[in-house]
């Protein structure tokens, strides 16, 4: 509503028909609660009044008041039952609203999943895989082209020569005749070791003698 001159409403109302029903139920509940409060108060007053009448010796009047009190107590019990029904209905309504939200959520999730699957067909995946393989091959081709394109074979020779030169200048010259400069490898055991061995042998002999 509102037509051309109406304010453009910022948002559609988020209040649903169910919300309105819940509100009505809850308002009804509030009314019953207020009613109960009132009855409870009048019950207390009646009790006090009945006691007063008894003290004054007005038995009949006291009885009348008690009768009224009894009637109101019955009313209270009835409203309690009504309240229970109302509250049960309200929570049922609220619970089904929650359930509806769950179902809505599931629906959205399902839709999204379907859409994703639409995009991801087997042919599509095959096509993508093919394309990427082609891409890799092409890249390799490019690599070899670039590598061979920049340096000619002469350049490669020059690079090799430079490498030789560098090796020669940085590493100490490894002599071919290095064997001649090294001392001879001894063929006998060193003197000290020999002595020790001999002593050990002697020791063992002595011990054997003792044991015998």
């Amino acid at each position: 509503m509102g037509g051309i001159f109406g304010k453009s409403k910022k948002q559609p109302s988020r209040v649903t028909e169910q919300d309105k029903a819940v509100l009505q139920l809850k308002q009804q509940r509030d009314k019953i609660k207020q009613y109960q409060k009132r009855i409870e108060q009048s019950l207390e007053k009646d009790r006090a009044l009945a006691i007063q009448c008894l003290n004054k010796g007005q038995r009949e009047r006291a009885k009348l008041i008690l009768r009224k009190k009894k009637y109101q107590e019955n009313l209270l019990a009835t409203t309690d039952k009504e309240l229970e029904t109302l509250e049960k209905l309200t929570s049922d309504l609220e619970f089904s609203q929650v359930q509806q939200q769950v179902i809505d959520g599931l629906k959205v999730g399902n839709e999204a999943l379907k859409k994703i699957h639409e995009v991801l067909t087997i042919e599509e995946v095959e096509r993508i895989m093919d394309e990427s393989r082609e891409g890799v091959e092409k890249q390799q081709e490019i690599d070899t082209l670039i590598a061979s394109g920049i340096l000619s074979s002469e350049d490669e020779d020059a690079v090799a020569a430079e490498l030789e030169e560098l090796v020669a200048s940085t590493l100490p010259a490894i002599d071919e005749d290095i064997d001649e400069k090294l001392p001879e490898i001894p063929t006998e055991e060193p003197e000290i070791e020999k002595k020790k061995k001999k002593e050990k042998e002697r020791h063992q002999e002595e011990r054997v003698a003792l044991e015998a």
């Binding site: 988020r14 209040v15 919300d19 309105k20 809850k26 308002q27 509030d30």
Partner: peptide, 14 residues
Amino acid sequence: EIMEIDGSFGVKFF
């Protein structure tokens, strides 16, 4: 959002 039915009010929080 504030709601009104028969002159008494209710509210729904979001």
